[in-house]
Nucleic acid binder design. Sequence first.
DNA 1: ATCAATGTTCGGTAATGCCGAACGGTCGTC
DNA 2: GACGACCGTTCGGCATTACCGAACATTGAT
Lengths: 253, 253
Amino acid sequence: MPGTVQSIERAAAVLRLLSGGSGRLPLGEIARSLDLAKGTTHGILRTLQHVGFVEQDRVSGHYRLGPALLHLGANYLDVNELRSRSINWADPLAARSGEAVRIGTVLAGQVQVVHHVFRPDDTFQTLDVGTMLPLHATALGKVLVAYRAAAVAPPRELDRFTRRTILTPRALAAELHRVHESGWAADIEEMTPGIAAVAAPIRGYGGLVVGALGISGLVERICDSHYHPHQHLVAYVRDAARAISQDLGAARR
Amino acid sequence: MPGTVQSIERAAAVLRLLSGGSGRLPLGEIARSLDLAKGTTHGILRTLQHVGFVEQDRVSGHYRLGPALLHLGANYLDVNELRSRSINWADPLAARSGEAVRIGTVLAGQVQVVHHVFRPDDTFQTLDVGTMLPLHATALGKVLVAYRAAAVAPPRELDRFTRRTILTPRALAAELHRVHESGWAADIEEMTPGIAAVAAPIRGYGGLVVGALGISGLVERICDSHYHPHQHLVAYVRDAARAISQDLGAARR
DNA sequence: ATCAATGTTCGGTAATGCCGAACGGTCGTC
DNA sequence: GACGACCGTTCGGCATTACCGAACATTGAT
């Protein structure tokens, strides 16, 4: 029987220790509990801190579980429920808005479409479920990054898809800030010429964003003559996203 | 600037990958996504599986996040809220039952008392918060193990505290099974001569047990002449534990 | 001022993690 | 039924990495 990776086992032991009791421990106590050298324990904690699974209190120097780990668990639990609860709200949103509806989550630094409802008309459409989309050029993606779903960081490589695609980190940062402030995102012919989309965050337990809900369609139908999305469509999307969030048990903190 | 532990960083990357999208991936896809050799990826997954952070589907061979990791996140989030919500229910339980109330969680393979309400009389008492108690000899501990709070395993070393302490793994297993079936635990002079206690599980998000709520007092007051806990006291404890659970947002699955 | 404990850094050593190669199993195609 | 492609798994050699003891700077208590 082959062995296991010692340092991963040790890191897991550290995380388990931090998960219980008071939830915050000094380095020396962690080292003693696990019978490790302080230097060894420090190296493990430094790495766990680097990946966001642990954080250190600036004042006391004590360690506790970090947001990235908490996001992992919360994200995973809710993404599973997200799919099953989407049906109840995505169909009505498609009917109400008259546009195609998609729900996406983060996978490997991209948007994965996990649910797709066709635009309620007779036009030919293809099913997008499973499709991977860029984070910076889609409304769904912008929402997921702005709210750090699955602790995802803004992408560094910004590929061009249309003449209107965001290409610089500075422009992306400004856009993400605006998304976070307003509570919704849009992409106006940034991914596909002639197509616009609007999306809003879906929150899970503890208010963490676990997905994004969006509609998309011809830019002439989504936007007014100044290329601003129609506010009634934005409201429809946000209402539906909020309803799904409530179904998931999100509680704002 | 010192470096980080490469295998811990890689393990974290695997967990992040599994946290998003469909939540289940084949080994080859994980290896390709992270640009790792299959042997390397397998070693990491084997270790994560060993510590319960990942599990493998028997049929498809695909990997997904495991219960121990999900417990970590859920446990941590709820233990923090547990403390703040205890006050609302522990005081009334002490008044109603006339006994001391304690709430405990798992820390380093033991029970850590995180809240203590004195028995409402004039007798001298000492504050137990911070005290560590054994898992096998206390009602709080039996509940935590029976429901695998913080993924804790049954203790292997069973120390004797009184003539009635459980000392064999077989007897402990039988007792834990009974606790899981009935939804509450008791220790009748198993930890302290002349003292009996009753405890029930406190559930957090997703129904996972994050703590235990218990009362304790003289065995003559807690039990009838056959050494069975008075059922009205069991009901009081279970009611209060259920109320705290609801406050925490537990949803049975 | 002294002491004890903290978290952090550093460098030498050997133990460990990594990876290429090979294996057995499963599934789809011909 | 044979074959090829792909899967997850195992193994052993190698070189790099993780580990740990020692030392350090900081902080708080006496």
